[in-house]
C-alpha cells in the first residue's frame, strides 16, 4: 500500500491522481454532452436514450458510485493541494505580476469550486427534482419535457450557461495540463496536447450551452 500512500501524500502523486480523476471526469462530461445533444433528434429518441440509461439497473448505480467517488477525490485533492499551496507563500508580493500563465490556469480552484456548486444544484434540479415545482410535476420518464421546462426560465438557463463557461475555463487548462502531470510532455506531443485543452473546452461550452439557448430561442420545444 506504499504506492497508495505515495499517490495521496506526495506532491507529484497527488497531481497524478488529479490528472487521472480529471481525465475521467472529462470523459464523463463529453459522454454527458453527447447524450444531451440527442435532444436535437426529438423527444422520442431522447426519452428512449434516457430510458436506456435508467434500465441499466445495478450497472447504473455502479457507474454513479464510481463517478461520485472520482468527483469527491478530485475535489478533495484540489482543496488539499490548494491549502498547501497557499501555505507555501504566507506573505504575498507587493507587486503581483504574471509572466505568461493563462487566466484559466490561475483560477482553477475558483472555476472548480463553481463546478462543485453547480453540480449540487444540477442534481437537485434534474435528478432529485427538488428545486422547481414545474419539474417535479412532470410525468416521470419524460426527460425531454423536463429539459425544456427547466430551460424555459431565462434565469436558470443563464446560470447553466455561466456554469458551462466556468467548466470550459477549467478544462482549457486542465485537459492540457493533465498530460504534463502524467509525464506526457514531449516535443512531438506538445503541439497536440497544448491545443487539446482549448479544443475540448470549446466543444464542451458550445455543446452544452447550445441547449438552453435553443430552448430560450424556441428552437427546441
Amino acid at each position: 500500500m506504499k504506492l497508495c500512500h505515495r499517490l495521496f501524500q506526495s506532491s507529484v502523486g497527488a497531481k497524478m491522481l488529479m490528472a487521472i480523476t480529471g481525465l475521467m471526469l472529462t470523459g464523463f462530461v463529453l459522454v454527458h454532452m453527447s447524450g444531451n445533444l440527442i435532444l436535437y433528434a426529438g423527444p422520442e429518441k431522447f426519452n428512449a436514450y434516457a430510458h436506456g440509461i435508467k434500465s441499466l439497473g445495478a450497472l447504473l448505480w455502479l457507474m454513479r458510485g464510481g463517478l461520485l467517488a472520482t468527483f469527491v477525490l478530485h475535489v478533495y485533492l484540489a482543496i488539499k493541494l490548494t491549502i498547501e499551496n497557499k501555505a507555501a507563500r504566507p506573505v504575498p508580493y507587493a507587486y503581483e505580476a504574471t509572466i505568461q500563465a493563462t487566466a484559466a490556469s490561475r483560477f482553477m480552484i475558483h472555476t472548480g469550486l463553481m463546478m462543485l456548486v453547480f453540480v449540487i444544484y444540477h442534481l437537485a434540479h434534474y435528478t432529485f427534482k427538488i428545486v422547481s415545482p414545474e419539474i417535479s410535476a412532470l410525468a416521470p420518464g419524460d426527460a425531454y419535457a423536463m429539459v425544456v421546462t427547466g430551460f424555459s426560465s431565462p434565469a436558470v438557463s443563464g446560470f447553466y450557461i455561466l456554469a458551462m463557461a466556468a467548466l470550459s475555463a477549467h478544462l482549457r487548462h486542465g485537459v492540457s495540463s493533465l498530460f504534463q502531470s502524467l509525464g506526457l510532455y514531449h516535443g512531438n506531443l506538445n503541439p497536440i496536447t497544448e491545443k487539446l485543452g482549448p479544443i475540448v473546452a470549446s466543444i464542451v461550452f458550445f455543446g452544452f450551452s447550445s441547449i438552453p439557448l435553443a430552448v430560450l430561442m424556441g428552437a427546441i420545444k
Binding site: Q9, S11, K15, L81, N85, A88, R89, T102, S176
Partner: peptide, 15 residues
Amino acid sequence: QMKAEGFGNCTNQYE
C-alpha cells in the same frame, strides 16, 4: 524532501 521543506505543488502554469 521538497514537501518536507514546506514548498507548494506544481499546477503546470510554467511560470
